[in-house]
């Protein structure tokens, strides 16, 4: 889909795209069958993280902006969806839309302030503004402070599908995730996406070609914040809780790590990274606090040995096999 990110030119583009289609279909089938083998809640957690990492990847991978405040959009949407379902009693689809749009709006404000700076200063501004959101969540009476919003009702999708059944919810989350995944592929391979990559590669040159780069960055930031919000809202529905950990800067760090681990600027990287991260968290849980040490070692190895992430590593292995 994305020519620029293929490490080797595909000899026959038609065969390449056929392979890609088959692979996509196979992965979707696998995702549909997965809850018969694996715990659906774990899978849904993975999908929510994957959506979050994908949204984050739009900025870091395609515009070259490192946001260190994405938890604000993830967490704010979690609270908003929780409040909309629990207090206002809105239908779940409407609550999701409101939460997503609210995060996108918040993203426009944060982005508008942050894109005036570059590099570490950009990251610091996003961190500072996300801390503001964190303290609002801590102090506001609606958020439940340290307790968070608990026992959020899952409700019925379109009044028909009972989401309290985890299997039903899983397929809803999967459908939303897939829609967002394909939307993201379209975004990065649209005329807009091409300008984003141009800005990432050489911002002054993009200016000299007559592009108002700030407008493109702001739109990318808004889209990324909105999708992060959708991820947070889904997570709140899955776990039926919105808590301070969703807006904490740890969550901002986690999404950076997931994306790095999977592979920046690739379609599958954030998905692979998110599931790897969720698996580490789940299956290493018996080790208690050692989880953090093990995670740390994994990330150090990732940065030292395969900088282009798991997806990049797999691509290199495939190329080597292909050439021999």
């Amino acid at each position: 889909m994305n020519q620029a990110n293929l490490s080797t030119p595909v000899a026959n583009p038609r065969r390449g795209s056929l392979q890609r289609t088959l692979l996509t279909v196979a992965l979707i089938l696998l995702a549909c069958l997965a809850p018969t083998v694996l715990y659906p809640t774990f899978l849904m957690k993975g999908l929510c993280f994957a959506l979050f990492a994908m949204a984050f990847n739009l900025l870091i991978g395609y515009v070259g902006l490192l946001s260190f405040g994405h938890a604000a959009f993830f967490g704010a949407a979690a609270y908003i969806v929780g409040h909309a379902l629990k207090v206002w009693g809105l239908p779940v689809e409407l609550a999701l839309v409101i939460a997503t749009l609210s995060s996108a709006f918040l993203g426009t404000i944060v982005g508008w302030l942050a894109i005036r700076r570059q590099g570490i200063y950009f990251a610091m501004i996003t961190l500072a503004l996300s801390q503001v959101v964190y303290f609002v969540a801590l102090q506001a009476p609606q958020t439940g402070g340290e307790d968070g919003l608990q026992a959020i009702p899952r409700g019925y999708l379109f009044g028909l599908f009972d989401l309290s059944d985890s299997m039903v919810l899983y397929y809803v989350v999967l459908a939303i995730f897939l829609a967002c995944f394909f939307m993201m592929q379209r975004i990065v391979s649209s005329p807009f996406g091409e300008v984003l990559r141009a800005i990432r590669d050489n911002e002054p040159r993009a200016v000299s070609l007559g592009y108002q780069v700030d407008h493109y960055k702001l739109l990318a930031f808004t889209l990324s914040a909105g999708l992060s919000g959708l991820a947070g809202a889904l997570k709140a529905i899955v776990f039926q809780i919105a808590s301070l950990s969703d807006v904490h800067w740890h969550a901002s760090g986690e999404v950076v790590l997931m994306t790095l681990l999977g592979g920046i600027g690739t379609a599958m990287g954030p998905v692979v990274g998110a599931f790897t991260y969720a698996a580490l968290q789940n299956y290493l849980a018996p080790f208690g606090s050692w989880v953090f040490i093990i995670q740390g070692v994994v990330f150090v190895l990732c940065v030292l040995v395969f900088r282009d992430g798991i997806v990049g590593l797999l691509g290199r292995i495939r190329n080597r096999i292909g050439f021999n």
């Binding site: 975004i187 649209s190 807009f192 091409e194 300008v195 070609l209 407008h215």
Partner: peptide, 18 residues
């Protein structure tokens, strides 16, 4: 293409294909 595309006014249309 990036250089030529700007006057077309499509460069904010993230839902369009290339």
């Amino acid at each position: 293409r990036v250089a030529l595309a700007r006057p077309l006014g499509l460069s904010f249309k993230f839902w369009r294909s290339l």
